[in-house]
Design a protein around this nucleic acid. Structure first.
Lengths: 221, 221
DNA sequence: ACCTGAACACCGTTCAAGT
DNA sequence: ACCTGAACACCGTTCAAGT
């Protein structure tokens, strides 16, 4: 009897492995997600995991597809901008819960079914709003680039500023010696580091700018 | 005499290490960049590298800062949009040469001097064009999110489509079974996979949309 | 000052063996 | 059908030792 509940516990399945892997990556970062640690988390040796995932790439593919499932699909809102805004806000929220996923979501070479369904729903909303195929492609490209790019910047910012913003300020200022970077310093000191500033407001500014711009091209081409 | 040119060759320096590391990552991907392989490339044992970089994180920081140096700074163009467009196009071009760098450029916790100078120049151009500090922050955020997000998508696309687009088509279509993803299929078959389509055109569409949107807010706030 | 050999504590993955 | 132990070919990094 290796450990108490060894034969009491039913066998693992793929979904349990994926859920545990996501939880581990959320907690300790993707760098700490190793087959050995994941096995330990599940009360199993690392080698057992290969009964449920083909290899680590397959594990990551499965994790990403599961994360995509957390993003709201654009719904049946009458206004296409409202639908796109809700989906974009949800995507950003999801990625803020799983920052390790951001770089991976768009770079999997084999997107899963949930991912494909998500993209299909976004394109469908655009087409129903009257965008031509060419314009829908443009819209899809600019929206997704913006959403993922913003999430990437936000993840690195929250990583940079760590827990204490006062300490972060000290550290940042120490790296801006003697007005070598006057505009960056001005922006930091006079705006970003001021109490009222909230970086998350930047997201809606850019999103609305893009949606407004797209509305104007909706019936062209 | 370990190898022929051992005492003929002058000692390594940090820049040679960074240049070789970038070349290796360009050639084989970031996953193949190991201290041992990098040492081999330089005719040296892996342990010698620690005389020139503190550790692998420091190596990556140095590589990224050097890549930032390849991006054109926004110049003294009279039109701020022209300056921003040139810088954005250059950034995208640079990242297409160094796809491994994309996920890392915005996520380094200690940006180097070249990186800071780049950001300072971008903000300076916006401020000189009349953007308030708050509006320049908005503009900086939306532009950078878009540029990095687009580069990320482009890198994964070129990775996905591998060398032969016909094979890629087969593979993609095999994953769209029985009209489960009608809009995605339509976009692929009727537009993206057609001979005339060039994904790189998407970049300027989104960039111009954002620049036009920003121009309208240039004198607000 | 720069480089090396040996060692340590890790990785992902295979495979034969167990139940 | 699922899990394990032992093994293989790797990692980054430290450290004492060489020149």
């Amino acid at each position: 009897m290796p450990h108490p509940s060894a034969e009491a516990r039913p066998p693992l399945n793929r979904d349990q492995v994926l859920v545990a892997a996501i939880a581990l990556a959320d907690k300790d970062g993707i760098g700490s997600l190793t087959m050995r640690k994941l096995g330990e988390e599940l009360g199993v040796e690392a080698m057992s995991l290969y009964n449920h995932v083909a290899n680590k790439i397959d594990l990551l593919d499965g994790m990403i597809d599961r994360v995509f499932g957390e993003i709201d699909l654009p719904g049946d809102e009458p206004d296409w901008q409202t639908a796109m805004r809700r989906r974009a806000v949800s995507a950003r929220e999801t990625m803020s819960h799983h920052p390790w996923a951001i770089g991976l979501m768009e770079s999997r070479s084999t997107p899963g079914p949930v991912t494909l369904r998500h993209h299909d729903a976004v394109i469908g909303t655009l087409r129903k709003a009257g965008f031509s195929i060419a314009m829908a492609t443009h819209a899809f490209s600019v929206l997704d680039s913006y959403i993922y790019g913003f999430a990437m910047q936000e993840a690195s910012l929250s990583f940079r500023s760590a827990e204490d913003s006062a300490i972060a300020t000290q550290m940042i200022m120490a790296r801006f010696p003697a007005d070598q970077y006057p505009h960056l310093t001005e922006m930091a000191v006079e705006h970003i580091l001021k109490p009222g500033y909230d970086h998350s407001n930047e997201f809606l500014f850019g999103l609305n700018l893009i949606l407004t711009g797209l509305e104007k091209t909706r019936h062209t081409l």
